[in-house]
Simulated assay, not measured.
Amino acid sequence: MTTASHGWTALVLAGQRPGIDPLAAHFGIETKALIPVAGELMLNRVLMALADAPEIARIIVLAQNTLKLRAHRDLGWAVEEPRIEFRVSGATISGSVLSAIEDPAIGLPVLVTTADNVMLTPATISEFVAGAGASDVSVALVERSNLEAAVGPNRRTWLTFRGGAFTGANLFALTAPGARNALRFWERVEQDRKSVLRLAAHFGPVLMVKLLLRRMTVDAALKAAGSKLGASAAPVLLSDGRMGVDVDKIEDHALAERLLGHRG
């Protein structure tokens, strides 16, 4: 692992929503973050990528049951690593992140990702951090043709704008105080995250109509959305099309194993 020098804190969301996680149940595991992909725990893959990124000074794993994570033998290295900390998360994702950045010991800037973001690499982290500019919030996106060139046709939640369709890459940069406003807003609308129409409706009818008619570019849409929630927001388009793949479903797991197997 390399020595960090740039002072970013990475928050890794490693909990799960109430109830039984279907993917974890399929593999006979209680905790989704502990599902192996191509011979390595999902959480391990993400932590190793972050630990090897020179921009990352500190890593905090947020989960409801940190004892289970810390007890896993394959995460022993992470428990011993001084830059990695395990913290109990709150009731919601956005609330947990907000509590973290309001902790004087953490503050900003913060990079947020998830335990199922198994395609994450140090190179992508560097690309994303370099692309996160002066906005309060930067959102990593992958353009559809880029993803399909890397992995083939794929079912994702596509956000369609003038100039292309994009999917999220489970990577966010929170760099300025306005990010708190974005998190408070997201806490109110989090349940609609998988529905483009319901999510757009929270931003008002004018913006919703423009989005439906594909009148806005992705940059303009995020700028307009940011103005609604009191935070500047901008996209960072990633070059690695595989970053549009996270592991939410059984078919995602099979695809990730194929892609990681090809990586060697």
Rank of each mutant, 00 (worst) to 15 (best):
E102K: 11
A33R: 04
D136L: 13
D192F: 15
R258I: 06
T175I: 03
G39R: 10
A132S: 14
L211F: 01
L222T: 06
V88Q: 15
T175S: 15
S94G: 01
R214E: 02
R193F: 12
H202M: 06
D103Y: 02
V218M: 09
G163C: 07
L23D: 03
R87M: 12
D246R: 00
V110S: 05
D246M: 03
F172S: 00
D246P: 00
A115T: 11
L108P: 15
E80Y: 00
I56S: 04
G163T: 04
F203A: 12
T114Y: 14
V88A: 09
L147H: 08
E81I: 00
W158E: 05
V206G: 09
V139N: 02
G241E: 07
V129S: 05
H6C: 04
R258W: 02
V46T: 06
K210P: 00
A78G: 07
A165G: 10
V139P: 00
A224L: 08
V110Q: 00
E81F: 02
G204I: 12
R184H: 13
L41H: 06
T114A: 14
F86K: 01
R144E: 15
A234F: 06
A91N: 09
R83Q: 03
G261K: 13
Q64C: 05
A51M: 07
L69Y: 06
R198A: 13
I125A: 02
V129Y: 10
K249N: 12
L41D: 07
W186T: 01
R70G: 05
S195W: 07
S138M: 09
M48E: 14
R17L: 07
A100Y: 00
R83E: 08
A140V: 04
I250S: 10
P82A: 12
A176Y: 08
R87C: 04
T113L: 01
L67K: 05
A105E: 13
R242S: 15
P104A: 12
G76Q: 14
H253C: 05
L43Q: 13
G133R: 13
V206K: 08
I125W: 00
V12N: 01
S5N: 03
M216I: 05
V110E: 01
G164P: 02
H262L: 13
R263W: 09
A134W: 03
R83P: 00
L171M: 10
L174S: 06
K32Y: 04
G131S: 05
L75K: 04
G39P: 07
S135A: 15
W77R: 08
N65R: 14
L11F: 11
V247G: 07
G19P: 11
S96V: 02
S135M: 13
V118S: 09
G226W: 08
R162A: 11
L238C: 10
I106K: 06
K223P: 00
L43T: 14
L229G: 01
L111D: 02
F128G: 08
R17H: 05
S126H: 08
G133I: 12
K228L: 02
L238M: 13
A100I: 03
F185N: 00
A179L: 04
L67C: 01
M216L: 15
D240E: 14
S5E: 05
M1D: 10
A63C: 07
A24P: 05
P122E: 12
K68N: 11
L229M: 13
A100H: 03
A176N: 12
R162G: 02
R214V: 02
T3Q: 04
A225P: 01
P235L: 09
L174H: 10
V196R: 09
R188I: 03
L259Q: 14
V79M: 07
I56M: 11
P122R: 04
